[in-house]
Design a protein around this nucleic acid. Structure first.
Lengths: 108, 108
DNA sequence: GGCCATTACGGGACACGTAAAGATG
DNA sequence: CATCTTTACGTGTCCCGTAATGGCC
């Protein structure tokens, strides 16, 4: 399965259009980032970027991955907080109910 | 961010109720799997499993993570195939339409 | 004593950073 | 020549597997 690390790298590159610029945004150097994307292409068996003289451009497959990757990363980024909140008791015990008559009952 | 590797490990353990059994299912040994879950607990800063004399049991936070992790993993597992299909041209350009009359039209 | 989880230790894979090389306008 | 990407090389970290230790019926 694709690891999130590689997805993050690819999304940054695809959004910036330059490996160099994306590396700066991710706080790393260009060479490791370039290899990360290459590894992803090798894993998927297809090119994700068109290498241009001035930067890169996502291929068709790259665009598809960009969309999917954003969805997965967005969901994954919320997991950590959700679990911690549950551990603190702020969530997880919350039950939400719908009835047709609850609104008629006074509290207490 | 939590890596998918750790999520897969935790889901297997939580579902099996035994680190030993989950390790067999994942094709690995118990010690690395035990450490993987410990690493996840350290990352989240809360216990995910209650260690019992016969196996383990998810805590409240563990149950919350189990649910989230399944959703993320399910989504991530489809990414790879989706991108490869797009690269082969089987998807990405596919438009699906619904009409009220298409069924009345003969092919050709 | 048997079962299960954990710690200890050595080996391999992967990613990073720096430095040098290749490609293109 | 300037810009951007890629390859080369050495280092550090993380994970794995085997072996030994700890806790609880």
């Amino acid at each position: 399965m694709i690891e999130l690390h590689r997805l993050r790298a690819f999304v940054a590159v695809a959004e910036e259009g330059h490996i160099t610029r994306a590396a700066g945004k991710l706080g790393m150097q260009q060479p490791p980032l370039s290899r990360l994307v290459q590894g992803l292409e090798a894993q998927l068996g297809c090119r994700l970027l068109r290498r241009m003289p001035r930067g890169v451009e996502p291929t068709e497959a790259g665009l598809a991955l960009l969309e999917e990757a954003r969805a997965v990363l967005a969901r994954a980024s919320r997991v950590e907080d959700a679990v911690r909140r549950t551990a603190r008791g702020e969530a997880g015990r919350l039950a939400v109910g719908f009835t047709s008559s609850a609104a008629l009952h006074p509290f207490g």
